[in-house]
Design a protein around this nucleic acid. Structure first.
Lengths: 178, 178
DNA sequence: AGAACTAAGGTGATGCGTCAACTAGCCGGG
DNA sequence: CCCGGCTAGTTGACGCATCACCTTAGTTCT
């Protein structure tokens, strides 16, 4: 256990190739999004949540859970998005501490304009390149690792966070098409 | 093409589950590394390169290629690592512009102490959880997406970067065990 | 009612990563 | 020789993410 058990050739190939699915992929998606729509992945996630919310507004508390961020991250991010007029803030009348984050018309326009391109990007970088069997395999692998991360105890925000971030992008797909 | 072609259930399951392999996974590895060894993934990548270099030193130029970072990122990072005594700097006598990055004894101790735990983490979060067939599948998928990213034209630093970052962690495995 | 606790949200500091711009040294052609 | 263009590396500014800490407001217990 404490003695190094180095990776063999197959293992290292898999591990190495997994790296392609990490930073470079999300960087590519990010680039597409920011080039075509001047939004970051993070912006997109926030806007998706808002656009799916009942009155196009959401308590910060709920957003945190939905996206899986830390509240301070959300707070910082909302401040920046507010400066860009993508979202607004509103007081919560029933809870003096509460704060609603609202979707502005600008923000709504932005997400609607961005969504099709984003889905296309997801397709062109991943989904459309794989066979159904590979998609199935990928789903299994991701779920296994995801479960491991959750079991780890440190997964709370982590796993949920990212999963939902893009689960969101995908559920927007559903909602928008409807 | 310009008309949204939303993801179907299988596609979205795969896409969603892929998110687990992204940020949360590298965050978990990062956490392990920083908890056990007070190093970040980025620190680790740099130290691996140095520890594999001929005289435990490397031109910044070569490091950039090996890790796949932007030179400015490397420069900033080296500055920070230098402050922690993990690496040093040395002039290049044959090229007035050149700069060597050197591995300090402190840095060497750090990487040697960190490597076994890191490999263990990689195993426990991913490699050991998957069947050989899944590892094979993962390798294929990563390579397909990686190739796509490279073909995209924007892949230069990106794909190479992250791939090598952890190819490095893995090749350290080989070298260290030797 | 009042003390202790918890929940909601925000802030400041810090490290990280990218972009654009800059300096300094090399190299080749006139 | 010197001028243009290239390469190596650094710097500063900015946005992003996290950490630790703070304030304020609800909640609970006595």
């Amino acid at each position: 256990m404490s003695e190094p058990n180095w990776l063999n050739a197959d293992e290292s190939r898999a591990w190495r190739s997994l790296q392609f699915l990490n930073t470079p992929l999300s960087a590519a998606l990010n680039r597409q999004l920011s080039r075509d729509s001047n939004l970051s992945n993070a912006d997109y996630a926030v806007l998706v949540q808002l656009s799916e919310a009942p009155d196009l507004k959401l308590r910060a508390r709920d957003m945190v859970v939905a996206i899986g961020w830390e509240k301070s991250r959300l707070s910082h991010h909302i401040r920046r998005m507010e400066a860009r007029k993508l979202v607004g803030r509103e007081e919560c009348l029933t809870d003096g501490r509460g704060a609603f984050i609202t979707l502005t018309p600008t923000g709504r326009a932005a997400i609607e304009q961005a969504a099709p391109g984003h889905v296309n990007a997801v397709r062109s970088y991943v989904v459309d390149l794989l066979t159904p069997a590979q998609l199935e395999s990928l789903a299994e692998i991701g779920e296994i690792v995801g479960a491991r991360l959750k079991a780890d105890g440190c997964a709370e925000a982590e796993a949920a966070g990212c999963a939902d971030t893009d689960a969101a992008s995908e559920s927007l797909a559903d909602n928008c098409s409807a």
